[in-house]
Structures are given as C-alpha cells and as structure tokens.
Design a protein around this nucleic acid. Structure first.
Lengths: 348, 348
DNA sequence: CCTCGTATTTGGATCGATCCAAAAGTGTCG
DNA sequence: CGACACTTTTGGATCGATCCAAATACGAGG
C-alpha cells in the first residue's frame, strides 16, 4: 500500500484519467443525482485508482460548509461532560460531521478565545454550555455572526434566547422533595452551588416550590458552597454539627452527594436511615455507592444526542423555528433516601 | 455591537481602507516582521474597524497549515480519557491549536472512518489511542500520508513505531507486587482485560517479572475479563468463592478495583485487612473510596499535556528524531493495601 | 546628485474545490 | 426531419487567503 510521495491528486487529475471535466468529477464527489450512473462509476474508479483525498478546505472556501461543529464545555475531565460529549460525538459521526472541542474552565476569557477561533474556522454550528456570567450579548453576537448556537444544560438570561437543550431539573427537584416529604422529612436542606446560572436557579425554583407546597417555607434551608466531592463531605459535616440538623439533603450534583455519603459514614450514621441523601445526574457511580445513591437522572448522553441533532437540524434550516428541548429528569430512588430497603422504584 | 449582515470583509477591503495592498495586509495577519510598525498599526486598526474575521480555510488552501489536531480515544465518557483530553486541550489552547475529537469505541471501523475524515480536513497532526487490533500497517499508512501521528497510552506492535507517550505500567505493577510481597502476600492475582494490547502486555510483563523475582511463579494467577466496575465486582466474587482464594488483587484499572472493593464489602470483608486491592490510574474517586484505594497513578492529564506538546514539536520538525516518552507511574499506597492504617506514603 | 544596499511594499499567479449559465446529447412526437 | 423537452456535461469565474519575484522607498557614502 505504501505509495511514494508524489504530487497531490486533485479533481483535475481524476477528470483527465476518467475523460470527463472537473465539474463532472465535482458533482460525483457531492453525490449529485445529476450525473449518469456509468459516468459516476468511471469517476469513482479513477478516484480510487489515483488515491484521491477530498480536500474539504478547498470545498469550504467556495461553499462555506465545513462539516464541523464547535463544542464548549466547562470541564471535559468531569464525567458528566464526558458522557455528554459521547452523545454528541455519536450523533455527529453518523452525519459525517466532526466536533471541535474546548474546555472553558468556566472562564469567560477562554470561552471568548475559543469562540473567536471557531469563527475563524467557520464551524457550521456551535454547541455551548455557557460559562458562568456569560452575558446575553455574547449569545446574540454569535447569532449575529450567522452561526447557529445551541445552548446546552445552561442558558443565559431568564429563558433561552434561541435553541436550547437541557434537563427538567425543576420538576426533578420537586419530585425529590415530595418523595422526602411523603416519608416524613421536614428539615430538607438544598446543597447548592455558589454561582448564579440557569441550572442552579431551576433547582432552587423546584425546591422553593415544593417546600411551599408542603407548607414548609420556614424550614427551607439553602446551603451554598463549592461543588466537589470533598466540599460535599465538608459541607455535610458542618451542617450535621449545626444546631438545627437536616434530616434530608438534596445535592446540586452526585459528586456533592457522594461527599455527603462519606460524611455520614464518617460520623457512623447510615444514609437513608439517619439522613436521606439525593443527588443530581445519576452518574454511573451512584448506583454502586454504599448505600446506593438516589439521584435525579439527567441522562447526559441523551442530552448530547439531542443537542447534536438539533444542531444538524439548524444547519439544514437556519431560519426554522427555535426549539427548546427539555428532557425529563426522573428521580431514581435507591437506598440513600429510603427508610426501608424496599425494591427500587422510579418516579416520573 | 449588533452589525447588520453586510457582505463579508476580506483582506482586500482592509487593504482599501488602510491604503495598502492585499499582500501587506496578509503579512500583518501573519505577524510578519517585514512590515513597518506604522503600517502594521494602520492595518490592524482598519481590520478592527471593519470587523474583519480571519478566514483560516482560505489560508489553509494555500499554505496547507490548519492549526488543528485530531484526537482519537476509545471512549470519551471514561473519566480517564476525559482527564487525558483536558491535558491535551490545555496545551493546544495555549498554542492556538484546536482539537477535533472522536471516540472510536475501540472499533477499527469507526477509527478508520475518523482517520479518513481527518485526512480530508488535513489536520496538522494526530493523537491516537489505537483501537484494539489496529494493524501496524495503519500507523505506517498515516505516516505515509505525511501526517505526524503520536501514539498515546497504547502502541501497536512490540515497541512504538514512531512517537509515543505513555505511562510506565510495567514498573508500576512491579512496585505493586513488591509492596504486597513485603507485607507477606503470596497469592496475588492479576485482574486483567481480555484484549491483547500493549498496555495490557506491559502490566502482565511487570506482574510476571515481579512474581518470578519473589519466587512465586507457581502462584501466578491471571484472571481475564471485562473491565467495568460491575465486572470487577462479579469477577472478585467468583475468585473469592474459588478454592484457592487470593489474598491480594492487582486490577487492570481503578474501575475494576472499585468493583472489587464492593465485592469485599458485600461479603463482609475489609479490603486491606482481609484482602489487599490495588488499582491502576489513580482516578479522583480512588482516594475517596471506602477504604481508600491504593493505585498506580498514570496521571492522564500529564500524559495528555506531553502528547500534545510532542505533537506540536513534530509539526514544527516533521523529520526530527522520533520520541518515546514514558512517564513514571508511581504506586500510591492507601488503606486498601495496608494491614495497619499507617500514614499514607508514596513509593516511586 | 547619483549609486548601491537594505527595508518595505506590491501585483499577479496559485491553492483545489464549487457555482452557474450555457452547450451538448438523447429521445419523442407531429 | 425538425421542434421540443429533458438529461448530462462543461468551461470559466470565483471563494479569500499565501507565495514569490520584482518594484519601490529610503538612507548613507562618494
């Protein structure tokens, strides 16, 4: 197979070899229906014989389609975004698109630099988990560039400006609170993050709504802090040493919840019996924790798939009606929030 | 800021606005030293005033540099590869390069499709964790295409054909076995994967070497199976129910090891006291498991950084001498492999 | 003032595809 | 046989940058 490094094969070479014009070869490459079957075959054979490699850059220059999509996440090392990316990759691969990836580290500066680069590369669309504090103007600017942008998981402003794909965390948290209330819990604390973004606000709204519904407004308690496993452990320890200790914790994500489980076992308490714990995301680890962790499942892979599909649709119809896809975030009940260890069940 | 959608600004427009030629503007964009300071400033101001966006596609057509790099991993949802990717992204961002990402799912077919696409996009280099069973010919073919390729974590063939970045798992496993032997363990089982690739062979070589060194050849026991957390649990249960039960387990990766911990606690046994467990990768979760998991640290982020740096170097010097970078994989000793719970220490 | 070397600037060709309007080929039918 | 409709094919212009050899500007020295 090893070919000698001769000069690069272009459409012109194929045209000469197959006895047709450049234009015809181009049409074949674009899988156009215009060209006759016999001709198409001859051209394809010539291309194969010469070892032709399509030059997408050259095609882009004329047609301004790149078959690429830009993806920005906060931190690709976080398993949640890994799974999200897996869903995106899967869908794009099937459509012969390829993702450019960047981690913003929740820094506006890095996000801006990446966006500028994506613009230079003329990606066909952008999948953006906006960094904290991203101003609405940035999203509008992207639209202004003529670049379709899908906001994923978070959106800037009160409600999404354009296309959006996320999980229904509000309902998820409401279900979680109801599930706890039914079991007799009254002092339910929300372990939230510090930053103020849509995904955090949704959780908070669900929590407030459900606590109010249960007549527990005056027992509402929101604890704000960092969102790592370690922080979850420390914050839980602090809460349990306070004077009004909660009987149940709803955590911003599973990492924090797993930290909370560590804190409980460190104090010799049993999650579920002594204090209920519920996380968010239902990462793989949740089911295998000891005791198994109840969690509001956000299905990152499915979100990734939906977001990528929406991006492809928007590329095809740039002016189509904007969509807002909100996937269900069902509560998965496991031992960490059950007094008795009855069989696992799911609430919608 | 919202500009109306007028026709796209090109070098020609800037040239007209600044009263110079296209060529001069081009030189400014390339940050060439040739152009006089005053002219440069005038051009830059004109570009800013007109809202110019560099068209990298057009530049590529002529210069055949894309400022992109292709990255192939097996599964981006795996936290190990997430961390690896974070290191790659970090390094590339600093150099104004951008990664294309694809998950091969360890499928040769998907890998081949992605490689073909990368070729069409003319990436400047490739970072490849080769899928299982990748033939050496594929790697040679990539080189033949004139595309620098860095093998990461795994390499095809006995030893790397070209550039390679990985971790010294052989020494890591040797240290693990020695650490166990010193504590009196003799029946040490290696929980390996099924596939035959370099990373698996290195672990095995280390294991065989150290067992031989300790005169334990006839007690060597390699168990092959799937590499998930669940599989780790099941495989450990099966081993402990066998007739010659191991007193220590060295697991292919931390996921398997965490599964092993679950199995032990399920049987009412305590890891470290009743059976030692050591994993590979030292993922974040390892330190927080209960009991804390000993692990051979592969530092995926550092590997990602090194691999990306090597790629950049190879782009600058395509014909430079091939490199083989093998990072240390130190054994991090925690409670899961210690009889007494002495303070944590590290072995090199 | 002219010459020569160095520092800047420039026009035209070029990279490799697509687009478009027009040309060529094919078949049907009065 | 010629008109007409329809299917295929084609040449030239074009996308927006870079490359290169040649032109020009500038300054110092004779």
């Amino acid at each position: 197979m090893g070919s000698t490094a001769r000069t690069r094969v272009t459409l012109k070479d194929i045209a000469a070899h197959a006895g047709v014009s450049r234009s015809t070869v181009s049409l074949v490459m674009q899988e156009s229906e215009l060209v006759a079957g016999a001709t198409r075959k001859r051209v394809q054979e010539a291309a194969a014989a010469l070892g032709y490699v399509y030059n997408r850059g050259a095609a882009t220059l004329r047609s301004s389609r790149t078959a690429t999509v830009g993806v920005v996440v906060h931190d690709i090392a976080n398993p949640f975004f890994g799974a999200l990316m897996a869903g995106i990759d899967e869908t794009l691969q099937a459509a012969d698109y390829i993702p450019f990836l960047a981690s913003s580290g929740d820094s506006l500066d890095r996000q801006a630099r990446f966006l500028a680069r994506m613009r230079e590369h003329r990606v066909d669309a952008l999948l953006l988990c906006p960094a904290e504090e991203t101003p609405a103007a940035s999203i509008e600017a992207i639209a202004d560039w003529g670049m379709p942008c899908i906001e994923v998981m978070r959106h800037v402003g009160k409600s999404p400006l354009g296309d959006y794909v996320g999980a229904d965390l509000r309902t998820g948290v409401i279900n979680a609170v109801r599930h706890l209330v039914i079991q007799g819990h009254r002092r339910i604390t929300l372990l939230a993050g510090i930053a103020d973004h849509s995904a955090g606000r949704e959780r908070l709204a669900g929590y407030r709504h459900a606590m109010h519904e249960a007549g527990l407004d005056d027992l509402s308690n929101v604890d704000r802090g960092p969102l790592t496993r370690c922080a979850g452990r420390e914050r839980t320890l602090a809460l349990l040493r306070g004077n009004t200790t909660p009987t149940a914790l709803i955590c911003h994500n599973d990492l924090v919840a797993l930290g909370a489980l560590l804190a409980l076992s460190h104090l010799g308490l049993r999650a579920g019996r002594d204090c209920a714990v519920i996380g968010v995301d239902d990462i793989e680890e949740a089911a295998l924790a000891e005791p198994a962790l109840s969690s509001i499942a956000t299905h990152p892979r499915a979100i990734g798939r939906n977001a990528a599909e929406l991006a492809l649709k928007r590329i095809a119809q740039p002016e189509g009606e904007r969509q807002r896809i909100v996937l269900e975030a069902p509560l998965v009940i496991r031992a960490s929030s059950r007094i008795s260890s009855a069989v696992a069940q799911e609430l919608t």
